[in-house]
Nucleic acid binder design. Structure first.
Lengths: 210, 210
DNA sequence: ATCCATTGCGCAATCG
DNA sequence: CCGATTGCGCAATGGA
């Protein structure tokens, strides 16, 4: 049932273009995170399901990308929309960050601008990752492979969740069954005990005395 | 612990820019969908969890966006990478589709080029949605609200899944407990029965006969 | 008609 | 280096 198309609004050209926004966005702004349910803490230690093995991870990845170069005088509190057209070139796009909320409690420039060089990582690799050309064949191959992996992983997760759900249901039914059986047995036992109570023990010796 | 920043590869300007790709992408190409687990059908009728109320939805949204204007002579089988730079303007971006795989079993142009006008939808609304300026304040507000809702919904789902998991565990333990109790009762009952079997019923009449 | 809730998807970071 | 996970934002859609 795949290969469905929603609308296809714009020009529908056939380009990769890969424009994106994820690596940025302050996310969880005052307005957002403090709001909903358990408020803070959110999806912290909440493992998605039984999660066969991994259960810790880091749950942090691309959060505040646009932390730097924040308009010092952000808009009013609660929202920091900026009508800037675009600062990165067509190739260097992505990471456009929504910069929700806008201002932190403290100037964000104080944070370490360049990621502190983690020991053990080859500079080459870093550059290779960061300088990766979005139009490169290798990049697209990587993306496609990852997309496949993601879909697979999510299907798996869905199945796992569904199984857990079914198991819970079956266990509940089994529980009812067992509880009923226990009631039955208990009743039977009571009856038997009552029956015996009415006829005190009568040993063979006693019987002989008759 | 939010407000973390990953790397900030590019220029890190503070723009919304909203470049994105989702609405397109053929997705689930020969290579992808046929591959993983249950292959086709995938996450079809698999409700994420117990899903309090909604359980049908349509599970289809933006799948084959770049179906049209596919390069007739796609690359080889298995991958359809295209090194096109970008075709949409900075404002009309998003929906760039990866057009994985490339060619369908049949020329995709045969599909209805313009989305068939769904009866019941006002043209105004369509335009309002599709022509939405990515730089508009309203758009950003909508996006941010939705992002908040999405985070909330996902937190909820995580909690629900976790609860189901816990419930299954508790039920399993309860089951063991009940099963043990049943064994006990059954044994006791057997003992009692055996005891009675060895002393045939003795009515009062019989007793009097002694 | 507007708003929130869900859901599938692709991206990037990270884990194994 | 590669696949598996995971958090995130986007867009479509369901539902009130």
């Amino acid at each position: 049932m795949y290969q469905k198309q929603p609308h296809l609004s714009g020009p529908q050209c056939s380009v990769i273009q890969g424009g994106y926004t994820s690596p940025a966005s302050l996310s969880y702004s005052v307005l957002s995170h403090a709001g909903p349910s358990t408020a803070m803490g959110g999806h912290m230690g909440v493992t998605p399901e039984s999660v066969p093995s991994s259960a810790s991870h880091s749950q942090m990845s691309q959060e505040a990308g646009g932390l730097y170069c924040q308009p010092v005088g952000a808009q009013g509190p609660g929202m920091a929309y900026m009508a800037a057209p675009a600062c990165s070139t067509s190739t260097g796009d992505h990471q456009s960050q929504q910069n929700h909320m806008g201002q932190q409690d403290f100037p964000s420039f104080l944070l370490p601008p360049p990621p502190p060089p983690p020991p053990g990582l080859h500079h080459r690799q870093q550059v290779a990752k960061k300088g990766m050309n979005k139009d490169s064949m290798e990049y697209r191959l990587r993306r496609e492979r990852n997309n496949v992996a993601v879909r697979k992983s999510r299907d798996k997760a869905r199945r796992r969740i569904q199984l857990t759900q079914q198991r819970a249901l079956q266990l509940q039914q089994e529980n009812q069954r067992l509880q009923l059986l226990i009631e039955q047995l208990t009743h039977e036992l009571d009856t038997l005990r009552h029956f015996l109570a009415q006829r005190p023990l009568r040993s063979k010796a006693e019987e002989e005395s008759c």
